[in-house]
């Protein structure tokens, strides 16, 4: 059986397909979140070194994972949009950016909360935190560039270039920050702290990561739908949609 993938690559059919898929992902996100939080707060044992405060990692670590992963996904779709001139992929890339930036911010925020009881200070120039901060700047740069350009086609392509340049640079930046950190003898506590993490902790973290994943999918689909409506507002199918709503 051959599936006509291009059918779903048209914004109109994606709009309806996404609309049908969103409820399932919402349900999945909510269920996973409840299970993850339950394991995180009630099942996972108290850490003998860090007490209860360590439980922030159930949000912190998934957020940090998602923030990095989403940047790569964003650059991938933006690059596809640039190479093959597919409008939908560029729209998806623009839809990913705010969610990615949100997770980066969340990772920084929770990192500070976790740092205060652990290190006695809100901010430590730890290699990971610093890289995360730079990643946040990269997201902000991508979004501001797209926001400054009025013509959506130019915005898509310019965003793709900066996202790809960012992706090439991330390993270099990460490596430099690592080097810089060891040179300056930074914090000795690393985020993945104890050598053998309790299984419950690990499960909790993984489930929370899945929940974050589902949440991202929901947000990206919803935001892509909005971008589609905005960009296609003069086409026949959107006008039909509007008439249907007003009736």
């Amino acid at each position: 059986m051959t599936i006509n993938w291009f059918k779903y690559a048209s914004p109109a059919s994606f709009y309806f397909l996404a609309g049908r898929m969103i409820p399932f992902f919402i349900i999945a996100a909510v269920i996973l979140l409840i299970i993850g939080l339950y394991i995180g707060f009630f099942v996972a044992p108290t850490d003998f070194q860090q007490g209860e405060a360590y439980r922030i990692i159930f949000i912190h670590v998934p957020a940090a994972w998602m923030s990095m992963f989403l940047y790569v996904v964003m650059a991938f779709w933006a690059g596809i949009g640039l190479a093959f001139n597919t409008r939908l992929s560029s729209m998806v890339a623009s839809a990913i950016a705010p969610t990615g930036a949100m997770f980066t911010f969340l990772a920084l925020w929770t990192g500070a909360w976790w740092g205060k009881p652990m290190w006695g200070t809100w901010w430590v120039w730890d290699a990971r935190l610093t890289s995360e901060l730079i990643l946040f700047f990269l997201y902000i740069g991508f979004m501001s560039l797209q926001a400054a350009i009025d013509d959506p086609r130019r915005a898509d392509k310019a965003g793709a270039i900066i996202a790809l340049v960012g992706v090439v640079n991330i390993p270099i930046i990460y490596f430099s920050v690592q080097w810089w950190n060891t040179l300056h003898q930074g914090a000795s506590v690393s985020l993945v702290q104890s050598p053998k993490m309790a299984t419950a902790m690990l499960t909790g973290m993984l489930i929370m990561a899945l929940a974050a994943w589902m949440y991202s999918i929901v947000m990206v689909l919803m935001r892509t739908r909005m971008i589609i409506l905005e960009r296609e507002r003069h086409t026949a199918w959107v006008s039909e949609l509007k008439e249907g709503v007003s009736k």
Binding site: I134, G141, S144, N169, I173
Partner: peptide
């Protein structure tokens, strides 16, 4: 805008 785009990319050179 150019500073937002370019300064993060300058970090390795700075370091």
């Amino acid at each position: 805008l150019v500073s937002l785009l370019v300064l993060p990319l300058y970090i390795p050179v700075l370091i």
